[in-house]
Computed example of a mutant assay.
Amino acid sequence: MSSWRLEKTLLGLLLAVCGAGALAQASASSQRYTGLGRPATPAEVQAWDIDVRADFKGLPKGSGSVAKGQDVWEAKCASCHGVFGESNEVFAPLVGGTTAEDIRTGRVANLRRSDFPGRTTLMKLSQVSTLWDYINRAMPWNAPKSLSVEEVYAVTAYLLHLGEVLPADFVLSDANIAQVQQRLPNRNGMSTAHALWPGKEFGGAPAPDVRAAACMQDCPVEPRVASMLPDFARDAHGNLADQNRNVGPQRGARTAGPKVQAAAAGAPPVPGQAGAPATATAIATATAADAPGKPSDAARARSLAQSNSCTACHAPDKRLVGPSWNEIATRHAGQIDYLSGKIRAGGSGVWGGIPMPPQSLSEADARVLAGWLATGAR
């Protein structure tokens, strides 16, 4: 037999052996994993099937008063959403912007105003079932699904009372929630023109456009997002990010003055010209550079606080979700090791019941932050 025929025969035998081995392995695997898993029990399905539809299907029987809701709110909700639903510098406001006329018509007039400073939850809410469902499944944020049925009814009633939808002595229940729906300020504000759910229930809306052809030639160029204001006009009315908004924590664009803008760009300031908006890191660097002590360490610490979202829960001089930088610096002056460990490990109970999750910083970065806090949080 020639050599090439011998090689061909051997290769065929090798492939046959490998194929048989693979079949045997597949057969063994299928036998090994037979009977894996089981159907979910009705109780397990029910534990997850908790959504409440707009027609209130799925809503559990129960009730809760506005008075009870106030107690629950102040204990479990006010730390993030404010005593009166006005919120704080982190979360959007829940109440505000609606009127008695809106309750009568079911359309919130301020939603049509381009000059209104913000959109609260009660301005946009069109279904009370959505409010009940979200509170039930997601609140409070550090212990979702921990509220009882009575507490969910009560908190929903209290929130609607804050928006002057319900009186102070009202008891919300599964028996009267449909009547409460007829008092929502924006109950008639939901549009069905998008045709995402075509059908008779939406008046025979046309089918949604889900068959658009992809552009394959002469496609538009990639859009570039830019400010509508020219650079020289950005700072005409001061730094918008530092100005108050009369409805909750609506933040404006950061239009810092020429000194910080120039520091961000690495160029000397131009008198009378603001330039492009500075980044958070650049602003932190410029601010820290003016401080006594070690400006480079302070700048790095402030940059770390920004990039790791520490500023979502902590502010320089007042409490948000957690204590202020000043409070931490006062209580734990000089305690670099303690603060560094706390930053990386997280915890709760020191400043209240709301936990701080562990931060995924390196030990070196955590010590930079800890050192900045322990020396006064300049």
Rank of each mutant, 00 (worst) to 15 (best):
Q217C: 07
A100E: 09
T9E: 06
N246Y: 15
K294C: 09
I354W: 09
W351A: 08
G272T: 01
I354E: 12
D169G: 14
L184M: 12
A288R: 02
N136Y: 00
S173D: 01
T311P: 05
H81F: 00
P39W: 03
G266L: 14
A214I: 10
W197K: 12
C310W: 04
P140Y: 00
D231P: 10
P358Q: 04
N88M: 12
L111K: 05
A78D: 08
A154N: 07
K259D: 10
E164R: 13
M139N: 01
A241W: 06
D365A: 10
K200C: 11
V66N: 03
A274K: 01
A75L: 03
S3G: 15
L59P: 00
D102A: 04
R224S: 06
Y338L: 08
A263Q: 11
A289F: 05
S27E: 08
V155H: 00
Q46G: 09
C77R: 10
D71N: 08
N239L: 04
H194S: 02
G252S: 05
T121L: 14
G35N: 05
R187H: 03
T287S: 03
A43H: 04
T255F: 06
P269V: 01
G352M: 03
G62V: 00
S324V: 04
P268E: 08
V270T: 09
G163I: 00
P355S: 07
A22R: 11
Q181C: 02
S3R: 15
V17G: 09
S362C: 07
Q335C: 07
Q306D: 14
G293W: 06
Q182C: 06
Q250G: 14
G266D: 15
P206M: 01
W325E: 09
S129R: 01
V171K: 07
K124D: 13
N308H: 14
T120I: 05
T34E: 10
N142I: 02
L159G: 01
D365V: 02
D209F: 08
G82E: 10
N326V: 09
P208C: 14
L369E: 11
L14Y: 13
C18E: 13
L361T: 15
M356T: 15
V108C: 09
G353R: 13
C313D: 08
L94Y: 03
A289M: 12
L373M: 13
P167S: 10
A175H: 01
G69F: 00
P117F: 07
L125Q: 01
N136W: 00
L196F: 11
N110A: 07
M216E: 15
G252E: 02
V108Q: 05
A329Q: 03
L11P: 09
Y158T: 04
R245D: 12
E150T: 11
A364R: 13
P357E: 10
A299I: 07
D71W: 02
V210M: 07
L166G: 03
Y33K: 07
A75S: 15
W141T: 04
T375H: 04
Q217I: 05
L23A: 13
L196A: 04
L304A: 06
E222G: 14
V165R: 03
T279W: 04
R137F: 00
Y338I: 01
